[in-house]
Design a binder for these strands. Structure first.
Length: 410
RNA sequence: GUGGCCGUAGCUCAGCUCGGUGAGAGCGCCUGGUUGUGGUCCAGGAGGUCGCGGGUUCGAAUCCCGUCGGCCACCCCA
């Protein structure tokens, strides 16, 4: 027996479940227009090195979650695990960013992991990037964007966790300090943490397995240089100014190596799952150089759409048609079909059954479709009339054919 | 990659411990309850290789082994 199913870690999203996704995208798109972020369409896969170098060789994402293939030309390509490196590559390719660039993007990402709640191998992100400015106002705007998005989607009880991990230069001293701290407690550390002392000690702060050990470890936010410190203060002032609440999480470091200074995450308080973060972002002033471009600062965020949906719980389907056309007699079907066509051309949302069925069954379909009204084409059609019934109230009346459109709109 | 739980109608599941009367329920779906009226009610109906393979047995959805798949957690992150 060869029955196929969606590959492990992927999901088919069909109506009516996809109604929510349509809304999720529309809200995102509206917000992008309001904030002035242009749309970008990027490849689903890139040269493997874009991510290996961009994201960082010592991250989990690159170490073991890459969907990497060799194509027929012998090139190593990787299904994108995240958007920022890809976006930066595209901007470098197009000649770099002269003044500033605000780009948005929506689509699937791929990470090879063992699936669980809120973690699929193919998952969806909405992303915005504000590039070409090191102003803290940009950080604030991007953080605000994510906050507004969650609010509009109905996730109102969200904790915004904020931190600054400083600049690369600031981290030299800090690095020695945390390494010393970790070496003293070497035996208590998890194998992963032990391995990272030399390669990327800051990441240990983020490790659940080592939570107790690092509870009183030195944190980057206490080792900010003058500029990074001012920047962070300005970001906080900016958020206060917009009345966006946040908490400082000194051990928040994020999983991608390109971040510097500001990093943040959105965590719904009402959502209990291991994968609780529904979005996050950070500043990445060094990424352009890593990928071979001119030094260009940038800040961006990713929203985990799947997780936002999970955090919201069951959402009511809202199919909603303006009208459902019913052909009373089989001979009325062509007239009904024509009317359906005309009303659709006029911009209304209408549907009808796929074949002759008892009127009762057609009404049942009309009801299930979520239509506001049922429009009966039958004997009255011969006199230029149709019967229209408001399905919620049950009220019914006859209306002249040429007035249906106006009636449906009222 | 490691661990736990689970795979029976389209969906949610009961039955499995103590193998054996014709494989079930609810929801959904279809038809009907008189001429062209839904969401309630009533009646009838369609729909199942009991994940797959092997073993034990006179006999297995029920016991054993294997395998595939799903969910959740660890890890990590969106």
């Amino acid at each position: 027996m060869t029955t196929f199913r969606a590959p492990k870690g992927t999901e088919d999203i069909l109506p009516p479940d996809s109604d929510w996704w349509r809304r999720a995208y529309r809200v995102f798109d509206d917000l992008c227009e309001q904030f002035g972020y242009g749309m970008t369409l990027l490849p689903l896969f890139e040269d493997t090195d874009v991510f290996a170098r961009g994201v960082g060789g010592d991250t989990e994402v690159v170490e073991k979650q890459m969907y990497t293939f060799t194509d027929k030309g012998g090139r190593s390509v990787t299904l994108r695990p995240e958007a920022t490196a890809s976006m930066v590559r595209a901007l470098i390719q197009s000649g770099g960013v002269q003044t500033r660039f605000k780009g948005a993007f929506w689509g699937p990402m791929f990470r090879y992991e063992r699936p669980q709640k809120g973690r699929n191998r193919q998952f969806y992100q909405g992303d915005i990037e504000y590039i070409g400015t090191s102003s803290p106002e940009a950080d604030v705007e991007v953080i605000e964007f994510g906050w507004r998005y969650l609010q509009r989607m109905g996730l109102t009880d969200v904790e915004l966790r904020l931190n600054s991990i400083g600049d690369a230069e600031d981290r030299a001293d800090y690095r020695r300090e945390i390494q010393a701290f970790l070496h003293e407690r070497f035996d208590a550390l998890s194998p992963d943490a032990q391995r990272r002392i030399d390669s990327n000690p800051m990441r240990v702060l983020d490790s659940k397995a080592d939570r107790d050990v690092v509870a009183d470890a030195p944190v980057p936010v206490d080792h900010l240089g003058e500029e990074a410190g001012e920047h962070f203060a300005d970001v906080r002032t900016g958020l206060d100014n917009l009345d966006i609440p946040y908490v400082i999480d000194a051990r928040l470091v994020r999983g991608l190596d390109y971040y510097n200074r500001t990093v943040w995450e959105y965590v719904p308080r009402t959502y209990d799952a291991a994968q609780s973060s529904v979005g996050g972002g950070g500043r990445y002033d060094g990424l352009f150089e890593i990928l071979g471009g001119k030094p260009t600062p940038g800040v961006g965020l990713a929203l985990g759409i799947d997780r936002i949906g999970l955090a919201l719980g069951a959402h009511e389907a809202t199919p909603a048609l303006d009208g459902f056309i019913i052909a009373a007699r089989d001979g009325d079907r062509s007239a009904a079909r024509k009317l359906t066509s005309e009303l659709r051309s006029a911009g209304l949302r209408v549907d009808m059954t796929d074949r002759p069925r008892p009127v009762k069954a057609q009404f049942k379909e009309a009801d299930r479709s979520g239509a506001a009204a049922a429009i009966v084409v039958g004997e009255e059609w011969d006199a230029g009339m149709v019967s229209v019934k408001q399905l919620e109230t049950g009220e019914q009346q006859e209306v002249a054919v040429e007035e249906i459109e106006a009636w449906l709109r009222s």
